[in-house]
Design a protein around this nucleic acid. Sequence first.
DNA 1: GTGGTCTAGACCACG
DNA 2: GTGGTCTAGACCACC
Lengths: 123, 123, 123, 123
Amino acid sequence: MIDIDPRSPLPLNDQIKAGLRGLVARGLLKPGEQAPSIRALAGQLRVNPNTVARAFRELIAEGVFEARRGDGSYVADGALKKAERGLDHARERLLDALSEARRSGLEWSDIEGAVRAKKSEDK
Amino acid sequence: MIDIDPRSPLPLNDQIKAGLRGLVARGLLKPGEQAPSIRALAGQLRVNPNTVARAFRELIAEGVFEARRGDGSYVADGALKKAERGLDHARERLLDALSEARRSGLEWSDIEGAVRAKKSEDK
Amino acid sequence: MIDIDPRSPLPLNDQIKAGLRGLVARGLLKPGEQAPSIRALAGQLRVNPNTVARAFRELIAEGVFEARRGDGSYVADGALKKAERGLDHARERLLDALSEARRSGLEWSDIEGAVRAKKSEDK
Amino acid sequence: MIDIDPRSPLPLNDQIKAGLRGLVARGLLKPGEQAPSIRALAGQLRVNPNTVARAFRELIAEGVFEARRGDGSYVADGALKKAERGLDHARERLLDALSEARRSGLEWSDIEGAVRAKKSEDK
DNA sequence: GTGGTCTAGACCACG
DNA sequence: GTGGTCTAGACCACC
């Protein structure tokens, strides 16, 4: 369901958070539905369960998920809005990255080229 | 001349390096010209002088600047090409950021919108 | 009759035990009377019947209730005193909460205000 | 500066968060000032550094502190309001505890007695 | 020295 | 089986 890049400089738990938020934001995981278990996800991503647990813990603090002891994590009721708020963070991070790219001397044409390249590779 | 974001997860010295490389790559700082002094830059950016010194040290090692004993740093002769090599790093980081944005659930339309927004704000 | 908070860090079965003990201690459930059935209570509290069963099992072990095969649980004869012993636990937990509140920076005036507020709302 | 109770059922990291928030809320730690280092605090509280780090991480997410890489954590600028917002949480937890106490069958006179007892012991 | 992430493994409580 | 906390120790980057 989620994919992460262990070689990225971005912390694993952030990548996992982004992935989970993405699932909710795209409607692949709807309010009331059960999220994959920490251990299952950790096994699948080949990551330590603690790392996944941390991602969930923070998303629970944000109100995207809620945990029921002894029985999994569930998408919270108001999750969609919360997850979309999370998208704002993602958008901000993207804007930061654009600032950084400009700061580094990339021209807008370079940037737009990169977006096109990534987009076509993505399809 | 340069601006940095102290709350970014990106290392300060990397941001400073990117900024300096950007100045050279954009031609705002030409070969033979004197770079801002470590202490001046540190004061302006409100950053530890050691951090600025480290950025210069690494750029000198890359051949973008050269140190003249007792008289600051100057843009090296072949600096432009060297600085452009740095652009590749910037481009890669940008691609990473795009991956991350996608992973977070942003649609390509969102991403393109962000680019447009930043671009127009930039002018 | 009982209300619980599923998002509290306190174990559900403890909350249920507290609630049942409270019913007895306040005299709302008198010795010889029949306690609500496990399934009814579980349904009403939207909780796993196992959890309610566990609460009863422990209260039976404490001597507050007694089970009659095939006919539910009844308030035991000496239940009142037993239930009052449970009050000591409750009192200790309250003292813990007060410590915690102080540690968090609440002033005694805040605390007394909270007590007053809750008390008046309770009537 | 902070004291915690290792035998409390409350998670250590929550107690530490409460303690730190308390320091800020009471003005013992003012915006701009440096907080005790993770390792120092961990050593003093005889707790694993990770546990203290987690407390700080969450308070940073709340905006009470900010971390500067390689050089400690500092009380954030708007920390006072954030910390006070944290006091609301503390107040809510206290109200929960009062609910719980009532639910368990404690009378208001018992509760007020407990408050008085704790208060006098506190002086 | 500082904060930060990650792993590993133990232990608890809940269902 | 589930989530949750804690410890221990390694490793990284920054100042």
